[in-house]
Design a protein around this nucleic acid. Structure first.
Lengths: 221, 221
DNA sequence: TTGCCCGTTACGGATTGCCGTAATGTATTG
DNA sequence: CAATACATTACGGCAATCCGTAACGGGCAA
């Protein structure tokens, strides 16, 4: 089993629970920090001391408070760590169960497993630790289809950007200008209209406002 | 100190953490359930057995799963319990820190304290248990102003309903008709325009879409 | 009662969005 | 090269919204 594990999690209640779960797995050295920046420093120091961590368990989102952070989220932390300790095994442990988010995480970051917090979060976390130890990826059932099933991933980056700009209050005209500035194509008012139309059909939205509300509810933006 | 405490919390990791915190307060009888419906039944049974609970610690939002629930949220549970055991002391323990929500909860339900989950959630929970035991209300600092400060609560139920209908995809015209059906007043197209205009200024929104996105981000709808 | 405040309602013009049609551009295939 | 398919762009008519102005009506104080 893993010997030296670091847990990054802002909430103290969850930290308590996770610690107990790890102790039950007979993991001896458990460090816990509540900020990503602290995690980064710990991992760097551990390498320097030639006692690197075997496993990182990290939350995704962290509450902001008075301490300004260089790495405000689990995602930024993981990306930074890929240059520090690329072979570090990472288990994401988060409430986030929206496929789009999870999918980009799994594909672009080098994470070994993704566990959704929930009624059986700790049980799944234990499972994940076991399988990751045996170099097998673990995904919570809710997100397992994030990799296999492509049906829910119909919205591409362009459309995402489009809806995002809408949510910022830009008119179609303004989005057209913005896209021209940013060299995002297509950028004609007409094309933007057409794409929005497609999206409205896709998400069964009556109008732009409804579309933004729906996409926000789905957590895509 | 309290003798018999019930904890309603869906996530198992937090349950573990909370249990330890309660044990450290020398509370002997700790029951934990992961569904509000279970909590309701337990409390009823405890009364029937003439061994009622002293304290209820409840989460607000619960993940939905296969089990259909009569009480899907902490709020519905608490409201139901007011008829079962009105004198039961209740501490809400939730990540929810948006003033509007917390305020209506404190004012309309009979809850003794509100603790925000966070980096020091457990510490605050311990504090809250102590003060509630001494019949003093405890509020996490983040929401303390929910009661005192009225400045952030500028949006009333009417405006909230208005924005909500917008987010459902209704046009101003349709909202006007809807309000007439529901006998919500004012309901003329003109008034709806005016109210929306006021809201757009208030939330610095360029248009309706922007307004809905902003209000959704603030968690008001 | 009169005057005033304030919220509601009504209306008109300017802007934006919605939707269908059509022209242009581009990549693919036989 | 021609034929085809598909995406992008352009345009026009009509609906929804934005925004200013103004009329109407209830509550309240002089």
């Amino acid at each position: 089993m893993f010997k030296k594990v670091l847990v990054v999690e802002d909430m103290d209640d969850i930290n308590r629970g996770v610690k107990i779960a790890l102790l039950e797995l007979n993991i001896s050295e458990i460090d816990q920090v509540q900020y990503c920046d602290d995690a980064y420093l710990r991992i760097k120091k551990a390498i320097k001391d030639q006692k690197p961590y075997d496993l990182l368990i990290s939350d995704l989102s962290f509450k902001v408070d008075h301490r300004e952070q260089k790495y405000p989220s689990g995602e930024t932390l993981i990306r930074a760590l890929q240059e520090v300790q690329p072979d570090l095994k990472v288990i994401m442990y988060s409430v986030e169960d929206r496929l789009q988010k999870v999918r980009t995480l799994i594909n672009t970051c080098n994470i070994k497993s993704y566990v959704c917090k929930g009624r059986h979060g700790l049980k799944e976390l234990s499972k994940a630790i076991h399988t990751v130890y045996n170099n097998v990826q673990y995904l919570s059932p809710q997100v397992a289809k994030a990799l296999s099933d492509r049906s829910n991933l119909e919205i591409d980056d362009y459309d995402l950007e489009l809806v995002k700009q809408l949510s910022f209050g830009l008119s179609q005209d303004e989005i057209s200008s913005y896209f021209k500035e940013e060299n995002i194509s297509p950028n004609s008012l007409s094309s933007i209209e057409k794409h929005l139309n497609k999206l409205k059909i896709q998400f069964k939205a009556n109008n732009a406002t409804h579309l933004v509300a729906t996409v926000k509810d789905l957590g895509l933006i």
